[in-house]
């Protein structure tokens, strides 16, 4: 993806600038709204920002595809920012070295079961192949999911949506899963949230306890990088 992939006219630049300002304003409002609701999962800034921006799109320029083109510089920057995940991955190395296989096995089990089970459901119910490939990335951190989905022949936007829904379900279902299995342990909760509910789950895990947060970050990094590599090598 190239930052300068489209023809730059004055009109393009001014439209891009206008939509980027609107996006930032909507995001600012979304952050305040999330704080106001005490970080309720349904008030997640991604949901609020997207909803506000779609409403503005319908009022100003009903062609959503055109608005997405105007926001191309923001979409481009997601790539370099994703590379910044190297920092948390690097910081998790000591924990990974200490716990080794004991922590890798549950992450690998989730990393395999979550995408394959979702894929099987869509396959058996006859969804389009592009959707089946897209849902394989539902449990890895959103930027990797979008990139990997594109590489597999899936749809990046849909990957982001599947991802965010999965993250929210993960956070909402955790207390029920705790009750069902009668397990409520910080390490297990962290690994579950990071492996299955990626970044959204990790944000929840740090609210549960410091230890849950650390295990969730580790699981997010290992599953994100591991699944992206496995899927790209096998299907890319």
């Amino acid at each position: 993806m190239n930052l300068f992939a489209f023809d730059l006219s004055f009109s393009d630049i001014s439209h891009s600038a206008m939509w980027i300002v609107m996006l930032v304003l909507c995001y600012g409002l979304a952050i305040r709204f999330a704080k106001w609701t005490n970080q309720h999962i349904l008030a997640h800034p991604i949901l609020t920002t997207t909803t506000l921006l779609l409403i503005l799109t319908q009022l100003i320029e009903p062609d959503v595809g055109q608005v997405m083109t105007h926001l191309h510089p923001i979409k481009y920057l997601l790539g370099p920012l994703t590379v910044g995940l190297a920092l948390p991955v690097y910081n998790q190395f000591p924990v990974l070295r200490e716990l080794g296989i004991k922590v890798i096995i549950p992450i690998a089990v989730g990393g395999l079961f979550a995408p394959l089970s979702a894929f099987s459901v869509l396959y058996l119910l006859g969804a389009e192949p592009a959707w089946q490939l897209t849902i394989l990335t539902k449990s890895i951190t959103t930027p990797f999911a979008m990139d990997t989905a594109t590489m597999l022949g899936g749809i990046a936007g849909l990957a982001a949506v599947f991802n965010i829904i999965t993250g929210m379900i993960g956070v909402m279902a955790l207390p029920s899963v705790n009750r069902l299995l009668q397990i409520n342990d910080d390490k297990a909760n962290g690994i579950v949230l990071g492996t299955i509910a990626h970044g959204i789950g990790t944000s929840k895990a740090v609210l549960l306890s410091e230890q849950s947060g650390a295990f969730a970050s580790l699981a997010l990094c290992v599953n994100g990088v591991g699944t992206a590599i496995v899927l790209s090598v096998l299907l890319g």
């Binding site: 909507c26 926001l71 923001i74 997601l78 930027p143």
Partner: peptide
């Protein structure tokens, strides 16, 4: 980072 996902998520429309 959430803000940077929004342009892609708009595709769901």
């Amino acid at each position: 980072m959430s803000m940077f996902f929004v342009p892609a998520i708009m595709a769901v429309w």
